[in-house]
């Protein structure tokens, strides 16, 4: 019955991609869900994908059981500072980072399983006024943080057992860096988006700041999600959380932009707008807040985002089209949309701790 009610609505005339409900888990602790992610976990010689859920005061690890069920393996208790984000480390096993803070990130902590003494642990990675953080390949983490005088952009590496190795500093731009993305296929390149709508490019090996390129003020608060280099151009997937349905032509939710890093000139390649006709949220007094996008995630050519209406929209970024729409469930609105570390699996979360896994 639940599966039937949660069957996503496909929009007319689009390709036949759809979302199939595969399994569901629910944290019965009664705390509000803050984030969800996946992590590769190695146990007894085999590697499997596990789900990590976060509420304000704890983070839980879930393993797949028989018949599409999930069982909680362990819960890390975090103390007084609220968890605000899970930071997955790509292509690593048995390690995941979390960001803690009030309105902004004040601390990053590593959660891990230590086979040395067969125990689950947590250890501090970094504290400060942290503006952005991203897990990179090869057990590395990049973050930007601000002091009164300056900005620090730092990479921390972890050993397999979770010990922090020497950090590396990247040359900071003048503006605050608000998001990072690795450049796929270029192991030494990293991009970031700044508070004044610029794209910056670093050489990770040397720490050099190679280029700063302006995105344009007509698309405020751009956040980079993905970057790749092809034919001498740098393609960057940007999202615009303030996109509005009513301005769908001029204010898309996601854009793919091609930059020529040599000249800093750019051109739009593809635009993905909010799904038409998906009405906004009704508020007391009968006013309708237009549909906009609250938060989203990009993996390969797929983007997913929670809309203010409580639905989740999925786009094919290469087609520039919305391919599936997951309406709010019977238990309430969706609040989280994340792609799993494996291909084609969407994690959709509700505030009450319910997480549904959809095959896309």
């Amino acid at each position: 019955n639940v599966a039937e009610q949660l069957t996503p609505v496909l929009l007319d005339g689009l390709r036949e991609e759809s979302l199939q409900l595969v399994s569901k888990l629910k944290d019965s602790s009664g705390s509000c869900a803050v984030d969800v992610s996946t992590v590769w976990w190695e146990a007894a010689g085999s590697r499997e994908l596990r789900v990590v859920t976060a509420c304000e005061s704890s983070v839980s690890l879930w393993k797949p059981l028989a018949s599409d069920r999930w069982g909680k393996v362990y819960t890390w208790q975090l103390g007084e500072i609220p968890v605000i984000q899970i930071v997955p480390l790509l292509d690593t096993c048995n390690l995941v980072c979390i960001a803690l803070g009030d309105l902004e990130i004040g601390e990053i902590r590593l959660l891990l399983y230590s086979s040395e003494n067969d125990s689950f642990k947590q250890s501090p990675v970094k504290t400060g006024n942290i503006k952005a953080v991203l897990g990179l390949k090869d057990r590395r983490l990049v973050s930007s943080s601000r002091t009164v005088q300056e900005q620090q952009v730092e990479i921390v590496s972890f050993s397999e057992t979770g010990r922090s190795k020497d950090g590396q500093t990247l040359m900071p731009p003048e503006e605050t860096v608000l998001a990072f993305a690795e450049v796929e296929g270029m192991s030494d390149a990293l991009v970031g988006t700044t508070a004044v709508n610029s794209i910056v490019v670093w050489n990770l090996k040397t720490g050099q700041l190679l280029k700063k390129m302006h995105v344009g003020y007509s698309y405020p608060a751009s956040i980079c999600h993905r970057a790749y280099s092809d034919s001498g151009l740098l393609f960057v997937v940007l999202s615009h959380p303030h996109a509005k349905e009513s301005e769908s032509c001029g204010n898309p939710a996601f854009r793919v932009i091609a930059f020529n890093p040599k000249t800093a000139r750019s051109t739009g390649v593809m635009f993905s707008s909010l799904p038409p006709g998906h009405a906004g949220r009704q508020v007391p007094g009968g006013l309708c807040v237009p549909a906009s996008y609250l938060e989203g995630d990009v993996k390969d050519a797929s983007a997913a985002a929670v809309l203010t209406s409580g639905a989740i929209a999925v786009w094919d970024l290469l087609l520039g089209q919305c391919t599936a729409l997951l309406p709010p469930g019977p238990a309430g609105s969706w609040v989280l949309a994340r792609w799993a570390a494996t291909s084609a699996c969407l994690l959709a979360g509700q505030r009450d701790g319910t997480v549904c896994l959809y095959r896309y």
């Binding site: 030494d188 050489n203 050099q208 700041l209 190679l210 280099s229 001498g232 890093p261 750019s266």
Partner: peptide
């Protein structure tokens, strides 16, 4: 995208910018 829109394109942009940028 044409070269006229974006200016001269180099396949080795990363290496060239790394050679030019202050370290």
């Amino acid at each position: 995208c044409s070269e006229s829109d974006l200016g001269p394109i180099s396949l080795n942009w990363f290496e060239e910018l790394s050679a030019e940028a202050p370290s």
